[in-house]
Amino acid sequence: MDDAVLLFATGFGLGWLPWSPGTFGSLLGIPLAWWMSGFTRGSQLGIMTFLLIVAVPICHVASLALGSGDAPQIVADEFMAFPIALLGLSVARQPWVMALAFILFRLFDATKPPPIDHIEAIGGGLSIALDDVMAAIYAWLVLVAILSLWRRHGRR
């Protein structure tokens, strides 16, 4: 069972890449976000809640198996949290919106602005998943602001 959890937690091996495993692992979140964008906002929230409830123990077990906290090989937190960056957006399936959400998510996940940088102190699977949830929320906030400005000023 631990092998299956570790396989999933490492993004089916993407987490073992020697460079940018988080970025490559996050790519698995794109089809997930695309699929979720076909549902109502309420359904999207339900799916996200389920994914995050599942992500915490998966990340925790993988962390114990790898002998460290938020090991770079663990990427399930990235691909399971990324869809939050597009939650409820009617334009989520537009390629430029998906790409911008991905770039913003990776930027916030990599730079860890406050309070993301403090979340890792919680420890365990909860902190592994929560820092990516916060990065996705930051990406969502910036994306909503950009889309709002684009709608207001870009369509003249």
Rank of each mutant, 00 (worst) to 15 (best):
I84G: 01
P72F: 02
R152V: 00
P18A: 14
G15V: 06
G22R: 07
A136S: 15
A110W: 12
A129D: 04
P57K: 04
F82D: 03
V5H: 01
P18K: 13
Y138L: 13
A136H: 03
S63A: 15
D132A: 11
F105Q: 03
L51R: 01
I74E: 01
F102L: 13
G15Y: 07
G15Q: 08
A101V: 04
D132M: 09
I30F: 07
I122A: 11
G46R: 01
I53K: 08
I30V: 15
P115V: 09
S90E: 11
M48S: 11
A101I: 05
G154H: 02
A136N: 03
G25L: 11
Q44C: 07
T10F: 00
A139T: 02
A71I: 03
Q94G: 09
L32G: 05
V133M: 12
T23P: 11
D117Q: 14
S26K: 08
V142R: 01
F39L: 15
I84C: 04
S68E: 13
L64I: 06
V91E: 09
A4K: 00
R93S: 13
V75A: 03
M48N: 08
W19N: 14
F108N: 07
A121K: 15
G124R: 08
F8H: 03
D117R: 14
S43E: 15
I116M: 12
L17D: 08
L143K: 01
G124V: 06
P21D: 09
L141M: 15
R93P: 03
L52M: 15
D77E: 08
S26F: 11
P72V: 07
F79H: 04
R155L: 00
L104N: 02
S26R: 06
D77C: 07
L147V: 03
F12V: 12
A9L: 00
I119C: 10
L7T: 02
F8M: 12
L66A: 05
G154M: 01
S63G: 15
T49G: 13
Q94V: 05
I146W: 05
F50S: 13
D77A: 05
S127M: 10
L28T: 07
P114W: 12
F39P: 02
A145S: 14
A139M: 03
M1R: 11
A71K: 11
V133C: 10
T111A: 14
M1L: 15
P72G: 05
A135C: 11
L87Q: 01
Q94D: 12
G22S: 11
R106N: 09
I47L: 13
W150D: 04
G13R: 12
S148H: 05
A129H: 04
I122N: 10
L149F: 02
M98L: 15
A101M: 10
T111V: 14
I128E: 05
D109H: 11
V142S: 03
I146A: 09
R151L: 01
G124N: 09
I119E: 08
F79N: 01
P31T: 07
L143E: 03
R41P: 06
L107H: 08
M80C: 11
H60W: 10
Q73L: 05
W19D: 12
E120R: 13
R156I: 03
F108P: 02
T111I: 14
A136Q: 04
P95S: 13
Q44I: 03
M36P: 01
